[in-house]
Design a protein around this nucleic acid. Sequence first.
DNA 1: CAGTGGTCTAGACCACGTC
DNA 2: ACGTGGTCTAGACCACTGC
Lengths: 247, 247
Amino acid sequence: MAARHEQIADELRDGINRGQFPAGSRLPSESELAARYGVARGTVRQAVAALGAEGLIGSRQGARRVVIGSGARQSFEELRSFAQWARAEGRRPTGHVISTARRPATAEDVLRLQLPPGTEVLYVLRVRSLDGAPVLVERTVYADWIAEAVEHIEPDCESVTQRLYDDVGLVFAYGEHVLDAVAAGTRDAGLLDIRRGSPLLRIQRVTTTRDGRPVEWSDDRYRSGTVAFSVRNASGTNPLTRRLGPG
Amino acid sequence: MAARHEQIADELRDGINRGQFPAGSRLPSESELAARYGVARGTVRQAVAALGAEGLIGSRQGARRVVIGSGARQSFEELRSFAQWARAEGRRPTGHVISTARRPATAEDVLRLQLPPGTEVLYVLRVRSLDGAPVLVERTVYADWIAEAVEHIEPDCESVTQRLYDDVGLVFAYGEHVLDAVAAGTRDAGLLDIRRGSPLLRIQRVTTTRDGRPVEWSDDRYRSGTVAFSVRNASGTNPLTRRLGPG
DNA sequence: CAGTGGTCTAGACCACGTC
DNA sequence: ACGTGGTCTAGACCACTGC
């Protein structure tokens, strides 16, 4: 049983995310909300304070609270799966495997996946799209012990994360994400339908099981303007979220 | 004239920093503090809530509040200030103001900085370098109430953050960072000594005071290969850190 | 000027911890 | 059992906004 002020905060947050309170619009006054929910003004204040701490609304004395962003934010848990995030945004995610290969682990693979030298790993090159438009090139290296399960997944599988959970009960936790910008190479450009040299947001990440065992590491390159990542520094909120770009 | 709950928060914060309430010790109860300061319990709760948001104290229902530590928020301190981070890495940071201008706030400024429409804001264009090589173009908008203090800072001041703290006691507390990749425009290219169209890592950020009042927002563009950002998902560790690139 | 948010009070009940 | 923090109420006054 959640506290009343939390229920109210949830309802208001939903209202903001659903567009009932668009960015730039004004929230109802505290008194009005108090009457609507049948609570005292103090309880409403607890609720809106939470939204303020999350950065969703701003306030100035004497003026009604203003909605800052309708930023549909996903938790860090959902960050791991492109498909799950996209569906939550109301977009249609698709995926397509370009090539796969089994090779002996490179020095980098050994380091990142904490494998014995010489282990065979599985490389997969994937392109992922939103509503049919290519958005992301993924170059993933899977550890040997999960490689076979990955190879049994059909090439157009929408959510590999979901499939690995369904098939072998694997639950991903998260290691580390390193973000920088790179220019699209010839291959990237062809796959994403952009010009060579176009800016890409690159995220190099390691995914682990909950107990810290590395499962995969990946070099993901996002087409500029399609997706942005946001990090917030307020206490108690999720540190990193994915965002849709203006495209 | 600061609010009573802020005065109380300040006194308690000082007490923690001075060792009067060492890490691990318990804070006096809300009722005791209320009696000591001659205020209602609600006012004390406002004060301790601020300390909780800063990560100084923790609380569990039924038990007294526990002092966590004096100043463990190093990660964000470093993230916020380019100069402080660079020095910690053993690099030599420099900064140079290209241009400044006072203009009426745009709609975007009004929204991000929570200002009344028509307020005059201060735009500053800066280039920052590591060991003499340009690395970062910063386009910052300062709220009107801090603009004057910023204008009094010399153009090649190494750390604006430090100066604002020294001059007017301004402490930055919370922020949000949105990361994506963009192509360098003509201006960016000239300032960073790269070709037009080169990939840049863009970080748009809002910085606020401890109580959530926005101070500045900025569009920072990092030259590719110089700096990367990393996010880790272990609890209790720093969510976002800056990294040197291979350059 | 009326309305709004910021602040503060003085109570109350409950769930949880410590003893 | 008792103290504590978490929640909630029903008032109040003030500073500021918006008209």
